[in-house]
Design a protein around this nucleic acid. Structure first.
Length: 156
DNA sequence: GCCAACGTTGGC
DNA sequence: GCCAACGTTGGC
């Protein structure tokens, strides 16, 4: 089982939206490195939901990969801003996964906290200028994050 | 809104 | 294959 971190701008799609829908297809990733991570995902993997481009960027909750190797439908929709005319249904260029809601952290783990607790090597996210919307989280780091969210009330 | 840190595109 | 120009991401 692997751990991941997946970013979304809460104005576009937030952990609250996921909670309401219970599941969602993680569409719209158009970066090859991020896509390659999506391809590596397995059912049962856990993923941290990260809120980016907001006043308080950070990990807002937790979700689980429930379906892997899905062709992102938006690549075939000419009206979509994620439309890719070079992609064919025979060999889709963009794959993604379906994720399911697990929980919203009562105290989100803000980027400022993550920067404090982790190094560049621990967590790609804290690297300056990182723009990957999907990235792996080493197990030791993931377990530490999960412990932090459980004890966040005591620590704050 | 600014801007650093990328990634992508396309001419050559 | 190089690289300049351009576009995007995302923290601040």
């Amino acid at each position: 089982m692997n751990y991941w971190l997946m970013k979304s701008e809460p104005e576009a799609y937030s952990i609250v939206d996921l909670q309401q829908q219970s599941q969602t297809i993680w569409d719209g990733v158009r970066n090859y490195q991020a896509r390659n991570f999506l391809r590596q995902m397995e059912e049962g993997d856990l993923a941290f939901f990260y809120h980016s481009n907001t006043n308080f960027p950070g990990i807002a909750g937790l979700m689980r990969v429930v379906k892997k190797d899905i062709a992102d439908p938006s690549q075939f929709e000419p009206e979509s801003k994620y439309y890719d005319p070079k992609s064919t249904s025979e060999s889709p260029r963009w794959q993604t996964v379906v994720v399911e809601f697990i929980e919203t952290f009562s105290n989100p783990i803000l980027l400022s906290i993550l920067k404090e607790k982790f190094s560049d090597e621990d967590l790609m996210l804290v690297r300056q200028g990182n723009r990957l919307s999907v990235m792996p989280v080493p197990e030791a780091v993931a377990l530490k994050i999960l412990a932090m969210k459980s004890h966040s009330l005591n620590n704050s």
